[in-house]
Design a binder for these strands. Sequence first.
DNA 1: GTATGTGAACTATTTCACAGCT
DNA 2: AGCTGTGAAATAGTTCACATAC
Lengths: 213, 213
Amino acid sequence: MVNVNNKKIPASTISRLFVYLRELSELIKVNINTISSAELGERTNLSDAQVRKDLGYFGQFGVSGSGYNTQELKAALEKILGRDKTWNVAVVGAGHLGMALLTYPGFADHGLNIVAAFDSKAKKIDRKIGDVTISTIDDIEKIIKAKNISIAIIAVPAQSAQAVTEKLVEAGIECILNFAPAALAVPENVKVKDVDLSRELETLSYFLVNKKA
Amino acid sequence: MVNVNNKKIPASTISRLFVYLRELSELIKVNINTISSAELGERTNLSDAQVRKDLGYFGQFGVSGSGYNTQELKAALEKILGRDKTWNVAVVGAGHLGMALLTYPGFADHGLNIVAAFDSKAKKIDRKIGDVTISTIDDIEKIIKAKNISIAIIAVPAQSAQAVTEKLVEAGIECILNFAPAALAVPENVKVKDVDLSRELETLSYFLVNKKA
DNA sequence: GTATGTGAACTATTTCACAGCT
DNA sequence: AGCTGTGAAATAGTTCACATAC
């Protein structure tokens, strides 16, 4: 739940707006100019009411009786979501997961530029992955500030995650995407989003355990 | 929201039980035998009431005035979550992300064994990653059945995700962890969990957009 | 006729608060 | 005294349903 000019908006709404935006880009690619909330919902596995409610938090973008203009709605969402801006991102930890993120082709299209990578293993320092050179973790503060990085991705083992977090916070980072299976302690102004791969899989497996029970 | 012997339990509760379980293992490692809901909550960034409520869905595991026995609670949670069982997992797509998953060390500790990998690129077929040999996507059905695989991870590009999903469903898969940024259409009995890395980062970046507004 | 926008109803989830146990 | 277990209250989020607009 997020505060936007004294309105309370579910965090899940924000997340879905990105889904609508992506779908609108696809629609525009195939020259579809108008779409109803029902159709947009169909394509994103959401209900028509959900689509309308989500958009309704931010204004009135549709035309009664016909639907939404894809170009206009896309432009409006881009504005709302700050997609005119781009962000510099750092990856901490250059193991397999860190490497996957460093070479993930999807980020750039979304205004997310990975401009730095850090690892603690001497062997990895100075290796170049695409445009990014791996630096030592000791240089976090210096590089984060120099490169104007606003988002960090933690892809280190659980036991070093808290220490890394503290370095990042000291360097002024306020947004962290955390892949380590650890509960990070951070000041209030810092936003952490956890992605816990084992937990996702385990939660899924619970469905198997509990089925036909 | 999940049905367990005519009780309705939030899906998020299930997911948190895995977090408690992990924390209990840590506590046992350092010889802590008793823990209160408040302390357990502290360590997992959750409230004491949340911890008690979550556990309360499944029974009474605590002792008034003292707290929970770590060993007993761990054993109880393992039983509830089916952690006595192990699951065979397939990864579809052996790009960087697929490779990261194939070599991710965390799964095995959680009863999740990756026993097959698939890719469409001829170049990759028959390559061996650890114990797993990459097979052609055409063999999905054969191998899924032969190896008794119950969970599949989709790590292919968005445009091939639906086709892969259909092959998996035909092969009898009922649990899918989907990393492709695409809304998958599946029959009702199939459970899909989406992990959308760009979306996670974008949602996080919205925090930056909207701050100090 | 068709589809939006939105209060109201409903459902889900978390937090409160306290009786009761050790 | 301290902490659990749990109804009740509060908060959050989704779906309904319909007046309104084109």
